[in-house]
Write a protein that binds this DNA or RNA. Structure first.
Length: 474
RNA sequence: GUCCCCAUCGUCUAGUUAGGCCUAGGACAUCGCCCUUUCACGGCGGUAACACCGGUUCAAAUCCGGUUGGGGACGCCA
């Protein structure tokens, strides 16, 4: 058995919550590591002192944890590794591969605007390259980009990408506050952590040539690069807050099952033949970079909903009930469906509902009328079924249910069957008004299950209430 | 503006690496039918795509070039 030396990392910056794109990047890295029996590392890129927050760090951990994307090493924080970056910067400085720059942000900003206005690519002009008078004034350290005609990025997903070398300028590696910049810290850490495969969003493609020249300056081997396409909103722009719910935890709150989201996200940009539904193990077994596409994907909430429904229906009732608990609304007026005073059997109610809902929030709403005497009646149910024409029918149900000897499925079937014969109505016609009166909805578990779930007393109470609602008529 | 990337049904995609098995397959959504002691679930079927133009080849969704369209990056952000 050969132990694979594959090492990958997810390197979020803690400037917000974990969003779908980040979650997918994390997932692909995680799956790649697990598939190859490698190591998955979590590294927090918190070198932006102004924007990084502790809340964001926590939010990212929460998101990963909810999705069960767990890491083997870390979390490492770049803010705790400043010495390392400083040391490498000093080495580059002493080797003449980097230099101090005293230009101020304001000056640079002005020059950038000028360039942009003239339509030429903004790049640092190198004016501090050869200055020899150092002072204690605030300064940054810049990388002395070597003259190269071309930098080629070998990408596992896109093949070779060629960049014109003289488009790269002398970029900042250490800021005036002593913190490293992104492009610098990434390279140093990927090197130090012996990352073998850099799997990240393709918004980083343009950074890669810079990073490669730095790897070369350090005489270090290059990792493999794999740039995965972005996730877009319906307007085909990069997914952002503008598009509504992009935080992973928002999906938690909306009642999605974590694995449904994982499954959905995995299929955005990756595929395995025609398969749509994957267990966690299948994801690990089948995942590979070869089948990651190169074009961006538009996020489709409808399909996510469908997937979530699949997972809800395939979950066993007791597990599902546990997941449902936090979503349940408080019960104001409890009732006991059975004569022994037992409360409603939640798993049983869930069982009846699970093929009819798509989220846990929907399930919580659906379950509520089976736990509480107070429940809302939907406008559709009211307008369609709780109407004067149905008043006699509901009254008839009320009368017959009153006299049923024992509240069993068989007896109820017999009673309703009889009513059907008498009225010359099929069950379809009978069940809907009954359903509306008992649950306030047009959709519910099978009508006999509803009757049993509620118990005679509650059924009679609700029919009576429905009659009141319809009002005296005819 | 400059650089880079991308391009199969409305959407996610299979097929592209090794051109023929593709009169292009699956899934979501949508439409219709069926099942059913009921709503839903489910089953069956329909509509719907290789962006465009050239080239290579006996043969191109697949290879090459260009056009168009879309996206991303151009920070002392990541």
């Amino acid at each position: 058995m050969t132990t694979s030396a594959i090492r990958v990392r997810f390197a979020p910056s803690p400037t917000g919550f974990l969003h779908l794109g980040g979650a997918r990047t994390a997932l692909f890295n995680f799956l790649f590591a697990r598939h190859h029996n490698g190591t998955f590392i979590l590294r927090v890129e918190d070198t932006d002192q102004e924007r990084s927050t502790g809340d964001s760090i926590q939010a990212i951990f929460d998101g990963l944890k909810w999705l069960s994307i767990d890491w083997d090493e870390g979390p490492f924080f770049q803010s705790e590794r400043l010495e390392l970056y400083r040391k490498v910067a000093d080495r580059l400085l002493s080797e003449g591969k980097a230099y101090r720059c005293y230009c101020t942000s304001e000056e640079l900003e002005e020059r950038r605007k000028e360039s942009l206005a003239k339509g030429i690519p903004p790049r640092y002009d190198g004016r501090c390259r050869d200055r020899s008078n150092f002072s204690e004034k605030p300064h940054v350290i810049r990388f002395r980009t070597p003259d190269l005609p071309q930098v080629v990025v070998h990408d596992l997903i896109r093949g070779d990408m060629k960049f014109n070398g003289n488009l790269l300028d002398d970029w900042v590696i250490i800021r005036s506050d002593g913190y490293p910049t992104y492009n610098f810290a990434v390279v140093i850490d990927d090197l130090e952590m012996q990352i073998t495969h850099v799997i990240r969003g393709d918004d980083h493609i343009n950074n890669t040539p810079r990073q490669i020249t730095l790897f070369n300056a350090l005489e270090a081997p290059l990792p493999h690069f794999a740039h995965i396409p972005m996730i877009h909103g319906p307007d085909r722009a990069k997914l952002s807050k503008r598009h509504g719910a992009t935080s992973v935890m928002a999906y938690h709150e909306m009642g999605y099952l974590p694995h449904a989201l994982v499954n959905y996200i995995a299929r955005l940009g990756w595929s395995h033949k025609d398969q749509e539904i994957f267990s966690r193990q299948e994801l690990i077994d089948y995942f590979d970079l070869d089948h990651v596409g190169s074009s961006p994907a538009v996020f489709n909430p409808e399909k996510l909903l469908w997937l979530n429904a699949q997972y809800i229906r395939n979950e066993d009732p007791s597990t599902l009930t546990n997941e449902l608990l936090p979503f349940l609304k408080p019960v104001q007026h409890p009732f006991s469906p059975s004569s022994d005073g037992q409360g409603p059997d939640l798993p049983k109610i869930v069982e009846g509902w699970k093929t009819r809902v798509r989220t846990l929030v929907e399930l919580a709403d659906a379950v509520h009328p089976f736990r509480d005497q107070e429940f809302s009646i939907s406008a559709e149910a009211h307008e369609k079924h709780l109407i004067p024409e149905n008043q006699p029918l509901i009254l008839l149900f009320l009368q017959r249910f009153l006299t049923v000897s024992e509240w069993t499925k068989e007896n109820l079937e017999a009673v309703i069957g009889t009513i059907g014969l008498e009225q010359d109505m099929k069950l379809g016609k009978l069940a809907q008004p009954l359903r509306a009166a008992l649950t306030g909805q047009n959709v519910s578990p099978g009508i006999f299950d509803v009757l049993l779930l509620l118990g005679r007393e509650e059924v009679l109470r609700r029919l009576d209430k429905a009659l009141t609602l319809i009002g005296p008529n005819k």
